[in-house]
């Protein structure tokens, strides 16, 4: 097993009286690790801690083998970190090039020529090199998201923290993102959150499911999918005992939950396992079955 790039141990974080993370322990190794969870589960808080922009109330943080307790160490970590926040504002009147160039300076790339080469490189990686001179306000939402990703890639960082990188992208752009992120995951640590289980299933070697401020599952996607084995079945009618059921394109119902004895099982997918896991955790939290 390789040395963990991200180690969060016993993390507690609250916003005033609202707990966001409760005694959460999380580890990410080189490769792509996905964070899955419903809204308000604490994904963004966890990623912000991993990106050193937020300090936990309690717990130990180790990033790239360092504890970000002082400005110097935080600076050292940030030199090897690329971060894409969930809601990133981009200066509207900058050109795409100027915006990435500005962030490149903040990443201590002070030599103009090599900095400009690097800016062109990352714009090329996200397919924006030909709109480098366009002002940000003239770019589409998807282009802005790619521009935000471009700045995270500056300097070839060892740790990439991406909070919902595919939100707001059309299907083609999402697939391009997948391609790019899978290439980025070779040789560095990529930590990404998404509501889209397809993206995570396609990309991640390791998945953590966060629910109500704690990790309820951590492991390979196949292991998570296996937890739903024998709990997904098809029927001609909506099954009364199903937690969730929906009609698919072939006219049959796909049911997730506790199956009847004569059920026709189908192979579960990541989202089935995720639904079951989150539902089970909610029930156990209120003392249900």
């Amino acid at each position: 097993m390789t040395t963990p790039t991200v180690e969060l141990t016993g993390i507690v974080k609250s916003y005033r009286r609202t707990p966001a993370l409760r005694d959460t322990t999380f580890v990410a190794h080189p490769g792509i690790t996905g964070l899955l969870g419903p809204n308000g589960a604490g994904k963004t808080t966890l990623l912000r801690i991993a990106a050193t922009v937020l300090a936990p109330d309690q717990g130990v943080v180790r990033l790239l083998g360092l504890n970000p307790h002082s400005d110097e160490v935080r600076g050292e970590i940030r030199r090897q970190l690329g971060y894409l926040p969930q809601d990133v504002g981009i200066h509207r009147f900058f050109t795409a090039f100027e915006f990435v160039d500005y962030i490149a300076i903040l990443k201590e790339m002070v030599h103009r020529r090599s900095r400009h080469q690097e800016v062109h490189r990352v714009l090329g990686l996200v397919g924006l090199d030909d709109v480098a001179r366009k002002r940000v306000y003239a770019l589409s939402g998807g282009m802005r998201r790619r521009l935000a990703l471009a700045q995270a890639l500056l300097g070839d960082p060892q740790l990439l923290v991406l909070d919902e990188p595919t939100s707001g992208l059309d299907p083609e752009q999402r697939l391009r993102f997948r391609d790019l992120i899978s290439r980025l995951g070779e040789g560095r640590t990529v930590l990404l959150s998404s509501h889209n289980s397809d993206d995570l299933a396609a990309l991640c070697g390791h998945i953590a499911v966060l629910h109500s401020g704690h990790i309820v599952f951590a492991g390979p996607p196949a292991e998570l999918i296996a937890t739903a084995e024998g709990r997904v079945w098809q029927s001609t009618q909506r099954a009364p005992g199903a937690l969730l059921a929906w009609r698919t394109g072939d006219g049959l119902y796909r049911n997730v939950g506790d199956p009847p004895p004569d059920a026709t099982f189908v192979p579960p997918q990541l989202e089935d396992a995720y639904l079951l896991l989150v539902r089970q955790d909610s029930l156990s939290a209120v003392g249900g079955p």
Binding site: V53, R78, Y83, V88, G89, I90, H91
Partner: peptide, 13 residues
């Protein structure tokens, strides 16, 4: 512009 979080994650103080 709402870029503060991004800028905070850079090594520049």
């Amino acid at each position: 512009a709402g870029t503060s979080e991004l800028v905070t994650a850079s090594p520049t103080t």
